[in-house]
């Protein structure tokens, strides 16, 4: 068991973390290529609107539109836990120091516990929302349910590992589940919608695609309808 734990802590963690980083860098790189290709059209983009929207949606308290209030609040609370706990929990900080050599400010144990419990509860609510509300169910695909489960697993196992009184398994076993589920998540992130963790501010740049490439329409028409293309 200790050997497994060492493997999950050491080489496996480093490898999967690298996959995530490289995968996300690839996503960002693809965005950069698109931006460079379209640079001549970017000058006229409504930068103020694009940046303003990206900012206001980062903490969408200004977007509590009727009919979305519960969903929005639940989503915000969920994201708070999902973002803060992996980064700032005391045990994780030690890990980041060991792995990356950076020291992050520490979250107190009580706050971290609260955030985790709230995030798990919110994830269950989101799962229920997807399953029970017709409009959400109509849009949901297997990978949407799966993504939620993948995100929740490390949170649940981590919480149980940190609270022996609740933990039905030996500590080491639970820790292994925690590590492996987190590592599975690392691998999935760059290849799924979870990549919005880095793409989020960039997706708004899609507004610039309203700027059509001059001459493109003519070339499309000629390719499809011939030189003398008519409406």
């Amino acid at each position: 068991m200790d050997a497994w734990l060492e493997l999950a802590r050491g080489p496996l963690f480093a490898a999967t973390f690298l996959v995530m980083v490289l995968g996300l860098v690839r996503q960002l790189g693809m965005q950069a290529v698109q931006l460079v290709r379209r640079r001549h059209l970017l000058r006229r983009a409504r930068w103020r609107v694009i940046l303003g929207d990206a900012f206001s949606w980062s903490l969408p308290l200004g977007h509590l539109v009727r009919g979305t209030v519960v969903l929005t609040v639940v989503s915000i609370l969920f994201h708070l836990g999902v973002v803060l706990v992996p980064l700032l929990l005391a045990d994780h900080i030690a890990m980041w120091e060991r792995l990356l050599g950076v020291t992050l400010p520490k979250l107190s144990v009580g706050v971290a516990d609260l955030l985790t419990i709230v995030a798990i509860a919110c994830a269950l609510l989101l799962l229920a929302y997807r399953t029970l509300v017709p409009r959400a169910r109509a849009l949901s695909r297997p990978r949407d349910y799966l993504a939620l489960v993948l995100v929740v697993m490390p949170m649940v196992s981590g919480y149980l590992a940190a609270h022996p009184a609740w933990n039905p398994l030996p500590w080491q076993m639970m820790m292994l589940v925690h590590l492996l589920s987190a590592e599975l998540l690392f691998v999935v992130i760059p290849f799924s919608k979870l990549s919005h963790m880095v793409l989020f501010p960039l997706e708004r740049l899609s507004q610039t695609y309203w700027q059509v490439q001059p001459g493109a329409g003519e070339r499309v028409a000629q390719a499809l309808l011939g030189e003398e293309a008519r409406v």
Binding site: L71, A136, L139, S140, R141, K193, L199
Partner: peptide, 8 residues
């Protein structure tokens, strides 16, 4: 890559 299917 991004579509979240959140139904908002």
């Amino acid at each position: 890559a991004a579509l979240g299917r959140c139904s908002r």
